Measured scan of single mutants.
Amino acid sequence: RRRVRAILPYTKVPDTDEISFLKGDMFIVHNELEDGWMWVTNLRTDEQGLIVEDLVEEVG
């Protein structure tokens, strides 16, 4: 499975499927959606939700 790491922190918009995260958080990518969004699991918090790919980098 594809893994990505947050390069910046992010605070979710209330009442959306987004998740908040810290710089350095690792995610497993489940689905890549339109307009650069990804459905992921945050490995630190075990939370699932949407993040935008501009805020993460690939992990080898």
Rank of each mutant, 00 (worst) to 15 (best):
Val4Ser: 02
Gln48Met: 09
Lys12Leu: 03
Glu53Thr: 14
Ala6Thr: 02
Asp46Gln: 14
Glu34Pro: 12
Glu32Arg: 13
Ile28Ala: 08
Val52Asn: 13
Leu8Glu: 11
Ile51Pro: 00
Thr41Leu: 08
Asp15Asn: 12
Thr45Asn: 11
Leu55Ile: 06
Ile51His: 00
Trp39Asp: 04
Met26Phe: 11
Trp37Glu: 05
Asn31Ala: 09
Glu58Val: 08
Arg2Trp: 06
Leu33Trp: 13
Val56Phe: 04
Tyr10Arg: 07
Trp39Phe: 11
Glu47Leu: 07
Thr41Tyr: 09
Leu55Gln: 11
Leu43Arg: 04
Gly36Tyr: 04
Gly24Asn: 08
Thr41Glu: 10
Gly36Arg: 07
Ala6Trp: 00
Thr11Asn: 12
Asp35Ser: 11
Lys23Phe: 09
Thr11Pro: 05
Ser20Asn: 07
Gln48Lys: 13
Ile51Gly: 01
Glu58Gly: 08
Glu34Asp: 14
Gly49Ala: 00
Trp37His: 08
Pro9Lys: 07
Gly49Cys: 02
Thr16Glu: 02
Asp54Arg: 11
Val56Lys: 01
Arg5Ala: 07
Leu50Phe: 09
Ala6Asn: 00
Asp17Ala: 14
Lys12Pro: 10
Asp35Ile: 06
Arg2Leu: 07
Glu53Val: 14
Val29Lys: 02
Glu53Arg: 15
Met38Cys: 05
Glu32Trp: 07
Leu55Ala: 11
Thr16Asn: 04
Leu33Ala: 12
Ala6Asp: 00
Ser20Leu: 02
Met26Leu: 13
Lys23Pro: 09
Pro9Ile: 05
Asn42Thr: 02
Met26Trp: 09
Ala6Cys: 04
Ser20Val: 02
Trp37Met: 10
Thr16Ser: 14
Glu53His: 13
Val52Gly: 10
Gly49His: 01
Val4Gly: 02
Lys23Glu: 11
Ile28Pro: 00
Arg44His: 05
His30Phe: 10
Arg44Gly: 04
Asp35Asn: 15
Asp35Phe: 12
Trp39Asn: 04
Ile7Val: 09
Asp54Tyr: 15
Leu43Ile: 14
Tyr10Asp: 02
Gly24Val: 02
Asp17Lys: 12
Leu8Trp: 11
Val4Pro: 02
Ala6Gln: 01
Pro14Tyr: 07
Val4Leu: 08
Pro14Lys: 09
Val13Cys: 15
